[in-house]
Simulated assay, not measured.
Amino acid sequence: MAIEKVREYFKQYGMEDRILEMEQSSATVELAALAVGVEPARIAKTLSFKKGEETILVVTAGDRKIDNAKYKHYFGLKAKMLTPDEVLERVGHAIGGVCPFAVPKEVQVYLDESMKRFETVYPACGSGNSAIGLTCEELEKYSNSKAWVDVCKPM
């Protein structure tokens, strides 16, 4: 189960106990916000894209959408999301629990600037009923992100 991989990943940092497992679903931004008890914008959603054979994850604030022109400018091609089967195969987490933790080394993780307005954000942890509260600095560190990017539409 993917949440166990994420728990094991965080164990090396002594942070596995910070993972929240809820009884209710947190598989969408709205459900996650209700489960965690925060505004939807503070849910750090992880979007999965393909760049040829490469896999790109972009973590954004829950209230933002990808701006195709910005995405193309930064990554050099049109945003093309992975299918649910491709996400599971390439990232190792199913839709609803996709996160930037415990992913294959070749998966490239980017963090969108939209999250920087919050002290803490809540990404999933590999299952459709999990999350972890992290500062943006912690998210940057533990996601092994390549860079902060600005690829979302403004409010």
Results as ranks from 00 to 15, higher is better:
Tyr122Cys: 09
Lys45Val: 05
His73Ser: 14
Gly126Pro: 05
Thr60Val: 14
Lys78Cys: 05
Gly133Asn: 05
Ser130Arg: 03
His93Phe: 03
Asn129Pro: 09
Lys153Ser: 13
Gly128Gln: 12
Ile132Gly: 02
Met1Cys: 08
Gly126Glu: 00
Ala32Val: 04
Val98Cys: 07
Glu39Gly: 06
Met1Asn: 08
Lys51Phe: 12
Asp17Tyr: 13
Val109Cys: 10
Leu31Val: 06
Tyr122Pro: 00
Pro84Glu: 03
Glu4Tyr: 02
Thr55Asn: 06
Tyr142Arg: 07
Pro154Arg: 12
Glu8Arg: 00
Met1Arg: 07
Lys105Ser: 14
Glu4Ile: 01
Lys146Asp: 10
Gly62Cys: 04
Val151Asn: 07
Leu139Ala: 08
Phe75Gly: 01
Leu88Lys: 13
Val98Thr: 12
Ala41Leu: 11
Ile43Thr: 00
Thr28Gly: 06
Pro100Asn: 13
Lys80His: 05
Ala32His: 05
Ile43Gly: 01
Met81Gln: 10
Ala33Glu: 01
Leu134Lys: 07
Phe75Lys: 04
Ala41Lys: 15
Ser130Phe: 03
Leu31Lys: 15
Glu16Thr: 02
Leu77Val: 09
Ser127Ile: 01
Lys51Trp: 11
Ala69Arg: 15
Ala27Trp: 06
Phe49Gln: 00
Pro104Gly: 10
Phe49Ser: 01
Ile19Trp: 01
Asp85Ile: 10
Pro104Ser: 11
Glu53Ser: 15
Ala79Cys: 05
Pro123Ile: 06
Met115Gln: 11
Cys125Asn: 02
Leu34Val: 14
Lys45His: 09
Lys45Met: 05
Ala44Cys: 13
Glu8Tyr: 00
Pro154Gly: 13
Pro84Thr: 06
Phe101Ala: 02
Asn144Lys: 15
Lys146Cys: 09
Ala35Cys: 06
Asp150Pro: 14
Ala32Lys: 04
Tyr122Asn: 09
Ser145Leu: 12
Glu137Phe: 10
Tyr74Leu: 10
Gly128Asn: 13
Glu4Gly: 02
Gly62Leu: 01
Ser114Ala: 11
Glu23Ser: 15
Ile43Asn: 01
Lys72Asn: 12
Ile66Cys: 02
Lys72Ala: 14
Tyr74Cys: 04
Val103Pro: 11
Glu54Phe: 08
Ser25Glu: 15
Gly14Pro: 07
Val103His: 07
Lys70Ala: 11
Lys11Leu: 08
Ala94Cys: 15
Ser25Gly: 08
Ser130Asp: 03
Tyr13Arg: 05
Ile66Lys: 01
Thr83Cys: 02
Glu53His: 13
Arg90Met: 09
Glu8Gly: 00
Ala94Ser: 15
Leu88Met: 11
His73Lys: 14
Leu57Lys: 04
Leu34Asn: 15
Val36Pro: 00
Ser130Gln: 03
Arg64His: 12
Leu34Thr: 14
Ile3Ala: 02
Asn129Cys: 12
Leu88Pro: 08
Asp63Gln: 05
Glu16Val: 02
Asp63Leu: 05
Lys50Met: 09
Val151Ala: 08
Ser48Ala: 15
Leu88Gln: 10
Val58Leu: 10
Glu8Ile: 00
Asp112Arg: 14
Glu106Cys: 12
Glu21Asp: 06
Gln108Met: 15
Ala79Trp: 03
Tyr71Asn: 02
Tyr13His: 04
Glu39Arg: 14
Met115Ala: 13
Cys152Met: 11
Val36Asn: 05
Gly133Val: 07
Val149Ala: 07
Val151Cys: 06
Glu113His: 13
Gly96Met: 06
Ser114Met: 11
Met22Trp: 12
Ser130Glu: 02
Ser127His: 10
Arg64Met: 04
Thr83Arg: 01
Gly62Val: 01
